[in-house]
Each structure stands twice: as structure tokens, then as C-alpha cells.
């Protein structure tokens, strides 16, 4: 602590000699680093560490919200979930939802970025407006999809019937396969702009000269992309993928509004199933459901991060 107090703002820290400078810098750096980290850590500890710890603790009990009595049951909640067919469906759905959307968001986002990276009239306006799906509050855009996916009054079905492409309304949300595909499409819609704009940013750093030189050497568009563009945008693409995987695995709102996990539990993901369980005050079980997601995401995150840092 005494070192920190010498590091008051405004107080000049002038190194006397060059040799001394680096020694002192390293020594002081660690205390300054903690000082810099402190505000963020305080917020996270107060508002995150306790709830998180509480969540882990409560998941090992049979606690119910509003009831004083609870017993320590160790891993019973986790164990019971393994035999719960709905939970097994939930795990399966979460993976389908995650891996059925993230690759599409990635590829479409990449394409969107490559398109928007060109110069054309009103490009600035296009860039802003193609962000809209990401900006509209999900609580409201999900309701728009609820209308588009209506079994009876879907405008999409109406138009396709009118054009004679189909004869009956599309059963968007009433069929297990259709339902999950419909959810994926809505999720992709919402997620593409995030990828697009992140990768677009990365593209700004691709040196034009390199690209031109490669073009003069007769490299194809494809070759140029892999040789020149990809190395530059690789890291941002992976980071965007990482965050998108987390968001998708932890998604709640979209599914809650559109299906609440139905029909017959065929679209439950961790978030909705945990929330439904919590609805009956079984907070222990609900916490266990949520926490099952944690190791899965952590493993994915570590894998991706290692890859990102690999050639740092």
C-alpha cells in the first residue's frame, strides 16, 4: 500500500538514471496495475462474485425461494438433471442453436463486411442501417418475429400462398424442426450485423498496397483473401465468434417470447429451462441448470482464446 501512495496523480515520478528506470517501473507497475484494476474489480466483486458464489452454493441445496428451510444435497441437483429428459433435450437444443447459428452469422457477417468495405455512394448510411437488427430492443424485435411466424396470420405464409408456392400456411413454430429453424433464422438476423461491423473494422487494417501487389502478381480473389486479408482479420473474427457463441448459448429473450421452449420442450435452451424452473421457486435446480452451461462455455472460450493468442 505504501507504494501506491507514492503514486498520486500529479506527483512527478522522474527516474534518476536510466538503469534505475526500468527496475523501478517494473516494481511500481504491479501496484499501479492493481490500482487501475480496482474500480472494475470492485464492481465485479460486489455485483458479480457474490451472486455467482451464491449461485454455486445454492445449486448444491434443495432451496426454494421464499422458504427458509433448505438442505445441503451436494451434487444431487446436477445428478438428477442427467436423468431429466427435458434437460437432455435442452442440452441438445442449445448445441443445435449455437452451432446452427454461429457459422451462418460468421459467414454472412464476413460477406457483409466485405461488401460494406467497398466504397460506394451512401456507404455510411448503409453501414448504419444494416446495424438496425442489432439495435432494435430484442424484446420488441422478437414480437415482430412472433407476428411473422404466426401459424394463421403470418404475412410470409400469406404471400407464398398468394403466389401459389405453398398451399397451406407454414407451421413455423408448431413443428419441432421448423420451430428451431425459425428461432435460428431470427437469431442469425439479429447477430449478423455484429459480425459484419466487427470484421469490417478489421478490414480497415488490410494494407491496400499488399492487395494491389498481389492482384498484379495475378493472384485470384480467393488467393488474395487467404494470403492478404485473412491474416489481418483473423483475430477479430475469432473474438467476435467467441462473444457470439457466449451470447447464443446464453440466449433467453428471443426463445422466451417466441416459444417459451415449446412445442413439447423441443426448443428449450439453458436460459429458458432455468427460468421456467425458477418460476416454481426451485432456485437450487434452476442454478444447477444454468451452471451446467458454464464449463461448456469455459472450454469453448479457452480453446478460442488460445488460438487467438497463439501467434500474438
Amino acid at each position: 500500500m505504501s507504494i501506491i501512495t507514492t503514486e498520486q496523480p500529479g506527483q512527478p515520478v522522474v527516474p534518476h538514471t536510466r538503469e534505475n528506470f526500468f527496475v523501478r517501473l517494473v516494481r511500481r507497475e504491479s501496484s499501479l496495475a492493481w490500482l487501475f484494476l480496482a474500480p472494475a474489480l470492485i464492481i465485479l466483486v460486489v455485483f458479480m462474485a457474490y451472486p455467482f458464489g451464491y449461485g454455486i452454493y445454492i445449486s448444491t441445496t434443495d432451496a426454494m425461494v421464499g422458504f427458509a428451510g433448505k438442505n445441503f444435497v451436494w451434487l444431487e441437483n446436477y445428478q438428477r438433471l442427467l436423468d431429466d429428459p427435458i434437460f437432455r433435450k435442452t442440452v441438445r437444443n442449445t448445441f443445435i442453436y449455437g452451432f446452427g447459428t454461429v457459422p451462418f452469422k460468421l459467414v454472412l457477417g464476413l460477406a457483409l463486411a466485405l461488401v460494406l468495405n467497398q466504397t460506394f455512394r451512401f456507404s455510411r448510411v448503409f453501414r448504419a442501417f444494416l446495424l438496425l437488427p442489432w439495435i432494435v430492443p430484442t424484446a420488441i424485435s422478437s414480437l415482430a418475429f412472433l407476428m411473422l411466424y404466426n401459424g394463421v396470420l403470418s404475412p410470409v405464409s400469406w404471400v407464398l400462398v398468394d403466389w401459389g408456392i405453398i398451399s397451406d400456411n407454414i407451421n413455423f413454430l408448431g413443428d419441432p424442426v421448423n420451430a428451431i429453424v425459425s428461432l435460428c433464422v431470427a437469431n442469425i438476423w439479429r447477430g449478423v450485423p455484429f459480425f459484419g461491423i466487427s470484421i469490417l473494422a478489421g478490414l480497415q487494417a488490410v494494407p491496400d498496397e499488399l492487395n494491389e501487389a498481389a492482384a498484379l502478381d495475378g493472384a485470384s480473389v480467393w488467393q488474395r483473401f487467404w494470403a492478404v486479408t485473412w491474416p489481418v482479420i483473423r483475430n477479430i473474427t475469432l473474438i467476435a465468434t467467441l462473444f457470439s457463441i457466449i451470447w447464443t448459448f446464453a440466449d433467453f429473450q428471443l426463445i422466451y417470447v417466441l416459444t417459451k421452449g415449446g412445442p413439447a420442450n423441443s426448443t428449450h435452451v439453458f436460459g429458458t429451462y432455468s427460468y421456467q424452473t425458477l418460476g416454481q421457486t426451485f432456485i437450487g435446480d434452476a442454478a444447477a441448470i444454468s451452471l451446467y452451461m458454464f464449463p461448456i462455455l469455459a472450454v469453448l472460450a479457452v480453446m478460442l482464446l488460445r488460438y487467438v493468442r497463439h501467434d500474438d
Binding site: N171, L173, G174, P263
Partner: peptide, 22 residues
């Protein structure tokens, strides 16, 4: 029945009925 009913929520039948679909 209208077989899309598996995907209906509490409001869908109201609008389906009022729009003369069922």
C-alpha cells in the same frame, strides 16, 4: 384442427378467430 396450433400462444387463437380463420 388447424395444425399450427402446436405453436400458438394465448393470443393466437384470439386473432385467428377475429380474422375469420377458424
Amino acid at each position: 384442427f388447424d395444425e399450427t396450433g402446436l405453436g400458438w400462444d394465448d393470443s393466437t387463437n384470439n386473432s385467428a378467430y377475429l380474422s375469420d380463420q377458424i
